[in-house]
Every structure is written in structure tokens, then in C-alpha cells.
Design a binder for these strands. Structure first.
Lengths: 362, 362
DNA sequence: CTGAAAGCGCTAACAA
DNA sequence: TTGTTAGCGCTTTCAG
């Protein structure tokens, strides 16, 4: 009748989970002792510990995390929501997170929102059911319900890849590490205008698709306006970004604004696509047209000509997010002001070089 | 003293999880009724169901999956192990999986092994602790312990991206969907030799890094041997693949084998890097050198000249894996022979075109 | 240092 | 249709 009876030979038809009770029985100790031997070895005598460990090994015992978490009240899961895995930016942020979090015993649960608040809301709801110790979100724009659920759950939240400004009341939700997309837009205009470009276009995906891209464009347009430059040269696609969309965006822009002399794309992939299209059309870059990307993916430096773009510290953002979260989970960290990790313009060959006297402004 | 006392106002300092008991109390029903109203609505009267649902909404109740799984014995997690997220191949496989699995109530747990069996083993161990309903692995090469743990756990396993051949005894572990890398290697030689190339090199990362790449090279070398062509033109790097490594590989190969006329790279990223290097050096492709990639990522068709490569049905593989797993979990599927999804050579512009009379062989 | 009892939040099984 | 009881596998008390 004993449950442990059928476990030795895996011959039996019925799958019998091996529990810590089985291990304890095999080692001839109490369940609790087995638990301690496994989790707090220093609290158990050498002899018993050895016996337990050996029994566990023999039985291929694997602790049930769900049961453990339930009993201890501890959360073990750490959901990370990113908009997409197609941009290496997010993959690298994940790498930053994975450097420390798994070691600390947390399980990263990955979800991709596809830039949709509704999908984000769904994912948050699902993940909250996994007793998360915390949660990492991309961006600071969430649905009202997402915010409410998160608040109600009372889990630490880290928002990355965007920066809550002081005037945005109620933001951030909790911890926040990122940079100002608005200022990226401004800086790009400063840079391109400094290089002497005057007909500067922006191109990206539909505004609803990415609020951060929208904020970049706001900064971009305001900076143009301040300089008295035209700011109506806008290319938009309703498809998710890809090289093909980059080509199409460029073609459309060229048709509509034949006089434009520079384009700022919402990411390097679009910019690379545009560059390929220029190659095919025989448009000389940067002599006839300047192209600028955003995020500095690996391809940027390998393109011919190499792509001028904006570098953002993704891995660092991931690492920092992990560190902050760990500190907060350890109870060593209270409320915290948003952390700005900044960005840099990487000048390469798809733009004319900036005159000497302006170099340091970048 | 009642536990539910402190829950209404979130003012209290102490975080009080809202449980189904709280919902039941608020709705004035038994816990079990609340559970049924939430999970099997049809078993509860309209009135009570409405009351329960409303209470749940008001309290922002989120069911605890760990507790639910524990009680019902059901597994809710579905780990997916991929070697890396840097190749879009794996991202697309994930998309294929995500089309159906989450809807069916499963939570995908993502782990990346970085092409390491040790890391894979660790991940399997961790994930097995999450009561997985099944598990999806990349490739058919696993450590002895991984195999043992998986067998002991008795969970359905799907191995993707490679195909177990009949002569490989003990393989696959369970379900298997993929294609033969060995035959890819052969087909590439058939194709390149058919185009008239004679000094054909292969280039990729170190053999330990990717057993599937090794198998491709085996097929490649055997096919060369059969044709009496030299098969010692091999470029290897110990760094994970990237555009930069592709360039270096090409440079190294060029220095060692000045007479080579074609190179087959282990993936499109390496091939793209090599192509960029050719552009920089002014080497004409395919006039002076043919370049061929593997996996047909988006960039392949946009490069100038566009890259000849091997297309593999990744999204389909993901979808199929999901379907099979679902069928197995539903008990409608017994042991199953490996499923070959095949591959195609996509002829583009980095290789001379194949003579007419050979076209259909590809 | 070791053990026994209680219970985490939920649902299967049974009873009403 | 609804409620009660027991227990999933583990760890937290609290005793020895």
C-alpha cells in the first residue's frame, strides 16, 4: 500500500512522482530532515546529509517548485515582458537579466507583447498567477487594468527601456531604468542639422505600435520646429518592422519628398533595409541622402557604408534592472527615482561628418 | 481574527494575498463553488456564477497557478529549450509554438542553452521542478543525465530542429520533428558542384558548439569525397557566430586557400558577414567567389547580391511540435516515428545559377 | 540536530 | 446544483 513501493522499478505503468517523502524514507529519516539536508545542509549532521543526498540522487529526485513555493510563500518566478524578440535589443536585455537572476534562484518567464497593451495586460494577468517575486516590463505605457492588477498584487515592478519624466504623474509604477526617447529625438535633429541637413524625415511604424517611437518623434519634431526646419516629412508603415518595410518606407518617402536629404529610422533594421534599397537604386549615401538608425545593432557597423545610429546600453539596462530588483527583493531598497542610463550617437558613414566645432555637442 | 478581515483596504502594511476563499466569502458561497464558477462555469447556477465572477473582479482576484496545479496534479508549464535567441530561426520557432500552446492553457518557459549540453542539463533539471506537462528540446544530442532525468520524469518530450535516423539507436527520446542536417550537407555539395564549383570550403563555429552543424559538414565532406573533390577547406571559429566572425572566417579562408571558389557557411549571419567583407575587399560575388548560407533569414534576400541559402520550415516546425504535443497530452497520440519536414535550397545571386538540366535535382 | 504537526491555495471526490 | 472533506508536495513552526 505504501506509496514508495512502486517507485524503484520504472516498470510500472503508472507514473509515480518521486517526492521528498520518498527520499526521506529511502534515507531512513523524517521528511523534514530530508528537506533540510537539501536546502539548508548546514543544519543537518554530516551523516544524515550524505544519506539524504545519496537517496535523492538515486531516485532522480527533483523538488517540486510549485509545492515549495506554496509552502514557503516565496515567489520563484520573475516574468519579463518585452515587445518582441525580433530585435536583438531585447535579446541582449534578456542576457543582461540572465547574468544574475537565475543564479539567485529566480526563474525568468518570458512573454512578448508584440507592442500591444492588450496582450501585455493578458500576460500580466497570467504571470501574476505564477506567484512572481517581481515583474519586469518594457516601457512605461500600460493599460489601466494592468496598472491596477500590478498595484493590487503588490509585487515589485521594474520598467525598462523608457524613462518616466517628473511631470508624468503617477509614473513610474515602481522601479524604472531607461532613457528619454524624447531627448533621443532632439539629439538626432541636433546632430543631423549640425551636419548641415535641412530636409530631415523620420520613418517608422504606426504610432500606436510603439509609444517610445512616438516620443522620439515628438522630440524630433519639436527640435525641428525650434530650428525653423520643416517637420512634415514622415514615413509610416502599419506592418511590424523588417528590412522589407525599411525599403518600402524609403521608396515612399523618396516619392513624396524628392528633396529630402536625411532620414531618421525608428530602428536599425528599417535603416538597413533602406540602405539596401539605396544600393539597389544607386542612390549614394551619404552624398545624396543621409540615413540614420536607432539602437546600434551589430549589423550597423558592418553595412557598407556603416550606419550612423544611436547606441543604447541594453545589456547594462538588463544588468541594472536585475541588480535593483534583487536589492528590492532583499529588502534593501525602498522607493527609487527613475534611473537614466542615457544614450550616444554613434557617428559612422551614412551621414556626413559633423563639423569639428560641433563634435563635442554630440 | 478572520484572515479576510484586512483585505478590503489596501492600506494595511502587510501584503495579503487574495485567495479564492476571499472571493467565495464575498460572494457568500462555498470555496468550491467559487472554484467551479471560475473554472467550469456550466456547473454553477447563473446567479451564483455572476456573484462569484463579480466578487473576483472587485477583489482583483488572480488564481494561484502553483496551488491549482498542485491540487489538480496537472502540469501547466511547457519548457522550451533553444540554443540561442540570437538567430531568428529560434525566435520564429517560438512564434510557431506560441500560436497554439498558450491558448491551450500552457505556459511556455524559455531557456537558452548556448549550445552547451551542460547548460541544457541544468535547465532541464530546473524546469522539471515546475511540473511540466511536456518539454521541447532543440536537437537530439543530450547529456546522459539529461536523458535519464527526462526518462525518469516521464514527461512527453519533443525534439526539434534535427532528425533521428533509424540507425541511431535509442533516439529519439520521444517525439521528433526536424530535418536531416547530413542531407543538407550533401545537397549543398550537389548544388555547388552542379554549378561548376570545385574548390568548395565550409565555414562555421567549433564542432563542439553545434552538433547539427557537424552533421551538415559530415554530409558535405562525404559528398565531396564521392565526387573526388578536395574536402580539406575548412574554416572554424571558436567564437559564437556573428557578422564579425563571418568576416574573419572569410579572411582566414582566403589567406589559406586562395584558389577556393565557393564557401558554405553554417548560417546566414556568417554568410552575410562574409559578403560584407567581400564588398569591402572588392571581391566579386559570385564571379570570383560563391557564398552560400544556411537557414534563410530575412536578410538573405536583401543583401546585394542576394544570398543563396537553405530554407528550413521553422514556423511550421514550431506549429507541428505544438500540435503533436497537444495531441499527446490529450492522450490521442502514442509513439510516433520522427517526422521529416525537409528543406529547400533557395537559389539567389551569390552563386552562379545551376545549369538548366540540373535544376530539378535541387 | 531531528521530528511531528499544521497549512500554503487550490481542486478531486464524495455527500447532501 | 452546492457544500464538505481531504490532500497535492513542500516548508514553517514548534517540540524534543
Amino acid at each position: 500500500m505504501s506509496k514508495a513501493e512502486a517507485l524503484k522499478p520504472p516498470t510500472g505503468r503508472k507514473r509515480q512522482r518521486i517526492t521528498i517523502a520518498d527520499v526521506a524514507k529511502q534515507a531512513g529519516v523524517a521528511t523534514m530532515t530530508a528537506s533540510r539536508a537539501l536546502n539548508r545542509p548546514e543544519m543537518v549532521s554530516d551523516e544524515l546529509r550524505t544519506r539524504v543526498l545519496q537517496a535523492a540522487e538515486e531516485l532522480n529526485y527533483i523538488p517540486d517548485r510549485a509545492a515549495g513555493g506554496l509552502a514557503s510563500g516565496a515567489g520563484l518566478a520573475l516574468p519579463v515582458l518585452v515587445p518582441t524578440l525580433h530585435h536583438s535589443v531585447y535579446v541582449q536585455i534578456l542576457e543582461g537579466l540572465e547574468e544574475t537572476l537565475p543564479e539567485a534562484g529566480y526563474q525568468l518567464l518570458l512573454g512578448s507583447t508584440e507592442y500591444s497593451r492588450e496582450k501585455e495586460e493578458k500576460l500580466v494577468e497570467v504571470f501574476l498567477g505564477w506567484r512572481p517575486s517581481g515583474i519586469i516590463l518594457s516601457g512605461i505605457d500600460h493599460s489601466e487594468r494592468t496598472t491596477r492588477l500590478l498595484r493590487a498584487a503588490g509585487v515589485p515592478v521594474v520598467e525598462i527601456m523608457d524613462l518616466a519624466e517628473p511631470e508624468q504623474t503617477g509614473l513610474p509604477l515602481d522601479l524604472n531604468i531607461g532613457f528619454s526617447h524624447y531627448r533621443v529625438g532632439e539629439a538626432v535633429v541636433d546632430y543631423l542639422a549640425g551636419c548641415g541637413y535641412r530636409q530631415i524625415a523620420s520613418a517608422g511604424t504606426l504610432t500606436e505600435l510603439d509609444p517610445r517611437s512616438v516620443r522620439r518623434i515628438q522630440g524630433f519634431q519639436n527640435a525641428l520646429r525650434r530650428r525653423g526646419l520643416p517637420h512634415h516629412l514622415i514615413g509610416r508603415s502599419d506592418r511590424p518592422s523588417s528590412l522589407a518595410v525599411g525599403r518600402d518606407l524609403l521608396s515612399g518617402l523618396l516619392a513624396e519628398h524628392p528633396t529630402m536629404d536625411a532620414v531618421f529610422f525608428a530602428n536599425d533594421e528599417l535603416a538597413a533595409g533602406a540602405l539596401f534599397e539605396c544600393q539597389r537604386r544607386g542612390i549614394e549615401v551619404p552624398a545624396h541622402l543621409a540615413i540614420m538608425g536607432f539602437s546600434d545593432e551589430e549589423i550597423a557597423s558592418h553595412l557598407n557604408p556603416a550606419l550612423t545610429t544611436v547606441r543604447i546600453p541594453r545589456r547594462e539596462m538588463g544588468r541594472l534592472a536585475a541588480d535593483l530588483l534583487l536589492a528590492r527583493l532583499g529588502g534593501q531598497l525602498g522607493p527609487q527615482a527613475p534611473i537614466d542610463v542615457g544614450f550616444d550617437i554613434v557617428q559612422r558613414a551614412t551621414t556626413r561628418s559633423l563639423p569639428r566645432e560641433l563634435q563635442e555637442r554630440v
